[in-house]
Amino acid sequence: MEFTKTTELNSNHNHLEKMTIQELLSNINLEDKTVPLAVEKALPQIEVLVNHIVEKLENGGRLFYIGAGTSGRLGILDASECPPTFGVSQDLVIGLIAGGDMAIRKAVENAEDSLTQGWEDLQKYHISNKDVVIGIAASGTTPYVIQALKVCNNNNIITGCITCNKNSPLSLAAKFPIEVVVGPEFITGSSRMKAGTAQKLVLNMITTTTMVKLGHVIGNKMVDMQLSNNKLVERGTKMIMDELDISEEKALKLLMKYKNVREAIKNYKNGN
């Protein structure tokens, strides 16, 4: 099928500079409302990929995100939130960006055009066929990402992608593509907007669903979260209070003793 970059099509809105602030905000919001519906259409694709991720991570594998620019930053954001939220190792979900860590804050010229750097970046982590690699690119045409996935395929590593164009080169390179077609951006070609929002929603789904299936959530609570600030200590204390029907003082004491909600609840129930 023919490949059309819908992310680059002309905006449905024109003469933006003549709009009032209220009109700008309303029209951006109007476009944003379409994103969850586009994600919904991709749910079957997301489910297939998550099944493979859960299986690989249950058997000692890791999840890698690889992208450039906004897409790379979103992958790094999602990866960085897994340890504090679910108490997993920093090495379980890893985000890589074209141009390295410097590119998180500042664009690195031509970094996304390299045909070899993506695979080289993955090799630094001794990647193997136990792992899963997801390429993230709104356009679906980023060489850094596409070539990395192609080499992964050659090494029998499961590959997925998150893109916002149908039948893109990235979709064709990934074994399990996720295509969330959000259409033209409010500002023509500004894929940090609807496309970025769509990618963030999908990333949330992937790691949240995976972590639930790996046992890091009980009921609806983050029982393995890291107690890295007062807010999270308070949240953990309340979880223990609700689960065990004990006082705040007793719950906090348990939490401070075991440094983990799951362990505090388990040990209390076991009479420790």
Rank of each mutant, 00 (worst) to 15 (best):
Q226G: 02
N229K: 06
R105H: 12
A148M: 10
K250F: 15
Q226W: 02
I46M: 11
K238W: 12
S114A: 08
L49A: 11
V261C: 13
V108N: 05
G60N: 09
N154Q: 15
F3N: 03
E23H: 07
S71W: 02
N272V: 12
N267K: 14
V181Q: 01
L252Y: 15
V261F: 13
V88K: 02
E8I: 01
T209I: 01
G100E: 05
D113Q: 08
S89W: 03
K124H: 11
T188S: 02
G75R: 02
A137H: 06
V202K: 00
A198R: 01
S26M: 13
G69A: 06
K150F: 07
A68S: 07
A38V: 08
P83M: 05
D101G: 04
V108G: 05
D131V: 09
T141C: 12
V35F: 07
T197K: 01
K250E: 15
M1H: 12
K166W: 09
A173N: 06
S128L: 10
N167Y: 12
F86V: 03
D245Q: 15
Q199R: 00
S71H: 03
K18L: 15
I21K: 11
F64D: 04
D91F: 04
V151R: 09
M193V: 00
I187N: 01
N156D: 14
A195T: 00
T209S: 03
A79F: 02
E47P: 04
N260M: 13
H216M: 02
S128W: 09
E234I: 13
N165R: 04
K253Y: 14
P84D: 05
E248F: 15
N12V: 03
P36D: 11
S139N: 10
L149W: 08
I240Q: 09
V108H: 03
E55C: 08
E17C: 09
I28T: 07
A107H: 04
A38Q: 07
N129E: 12
L214G: 00
I136H: 05
I97F: 03
G118M: 08
V54F: 10
W119F: 14
A148I: 09
G196D: 00
T197G: 01
M102H: 09
G140K: 05
K41E: 14
V54S: 10
N220M: 00
G196C: 00
L16T: 02
N14W: 09
D245M: 14
V145R: 04
N272G: 07
S168M: 10
A137M: 10
A198M: 00
